[in-house]
Design a protein around this nucleic acid. Structure first.
Lengths: 201, 201
DNA sequence: CGCATTATAGAACGGTCGTTCCAAAACACC
DNA sequence: GGTGTTTTGGAACGACCGTTCTATAATGCG
């Protein structure tokens, strides 16, 4: 029993993601956001609350479209070891195609905003745990079927993979060089192998 | 033949580092800076030019005190393999003692400011290359004296170590948990070992 | 001691920030 | 078709932004 919203909320949120993604939270003004979202400031505040709330909505949407989708797709179509390698390879490819050097919105949020915003912090932590859990599930499954070495604890390998993932996203921001990123992937994935002298290859 | 500066430039620069380090570039105002540095805005502009120039000065000073010192100290007192392990262990310890979750100013700069500031970008890239070169020298030396496996190319191992380093600093920002950070270090360092089944257990 | 030169303090600048207010417009429902 | 509720556009708000200006104070050098 009221006037309905005129703009496409999903499209507007995607536009907001673009703004925050390429400029960060602090450097993005509400006027930038409203212009790119195709709405006025009043509509923005009416629909989302304030700038910070919009940022969290944007981050949530980004995460579910990006991280969530990737984990589900890889885990349901690839064998454990391939899922891990595919995840990292996709991130490298994504980073190398990122001409604007926007990086990863989640990583940007973890570095720029999270330490001073408890709610944002816990949202970021939650996603990082999801990614870590994905790696751990893959490692455990691989260790069970013999495609991943049992030499290291699954927790430690999952943590390392998460760390390498974060590292790639930061490195790519400053040095988007294919040899660097693909090169570091090789020894990183080799840790998963069994350490037999006459091992794989 | 003029009035001399009244404030301690080194102390002021250290205060500026603190500001930028804990709040980032955008969220730190010139008034914040001047207050913490114990000078007025006019003196700040007179001595450093503008906010951006001060940021770069602060970053330079931070890097030479932090990264530069660490590389020199470890490389001149430890054997290759220990220098690598010591570097990463020191970063983990530093991150765990970072109650304010300020992270690493260099990583913060790489993520927040560098992509939109060519000069800052090249400064960051330069430092990253120095760290990578340190890791590479250690790897090559270790491969020469047999304490590091020749199984992987030194370039790739150096890149991986650099990536793990960046990853630790981002992870620690969101999840400053000792088991996570120390746990991921173990398989990371194990890559340097020879893969003999009856190896250095 | 004067003079040139620089540093200092603090006010002041125009601009932009995040946010709110207001009047007009558009729908759902009785 | 009126009524109530929400959205919309755009102006407006006070606060703060990075930076500059002005006047005064402090020095090195002749």
């Amino acid at each position: 029993m009221a006037r309905p919203r005129e703009f496409d909320e999903e499209a507007a949120l995607t536009a907001a993601i673009d703004c925050f993604w390429s400029r960060g939270f602090e450097a993005t003004s509400v006027r930038d956001l409203a212009a790119r979202m195709g709405i006025t400031g009043a509509s923005l505040y009416n629909a989302y609350g304030d700038k910070r709330a919009l940022y969290r909505r944007a981050l949530d949407h980004y995460v579910s479209c990006s991280v969530g989708e990737r984990i589900f797709r890889l885990e349901s179509t690839r064998r454990p070891r391939d899922a891990i390698a595919g995840f990292l390879a996709e991130i490298v490819e994504r980073s190398l195609n990122d001409a604007e050097l926007k990086g990863c919105l989640l990583v940007n949020a973890a570095v720029e905003g999270a330490p001073h915003d408890a709610e944002l912090q816990s949202a970021v932590v939650d996603v990082l745990r999801q990614i870590e859990a994905f790696f751990r599930r893959c490692v455990v499954a691989g260790q069970t079927d013999g495609t991943i070495t049992p030499r290291h604890a699954a927790d430690e390998l999952a943590g390392l993979l998460l760390g390498v993932l974060m590292g790639i996203r930061v490195l790519a921001r400053a040095r988007p060089e294919r040899p660097l990123l693909e090169g570091l992937l090789r020894p990183a994935l080799a840790i998963l192998d069994d350490p037999h002298p006459k091992g794989p290859h």
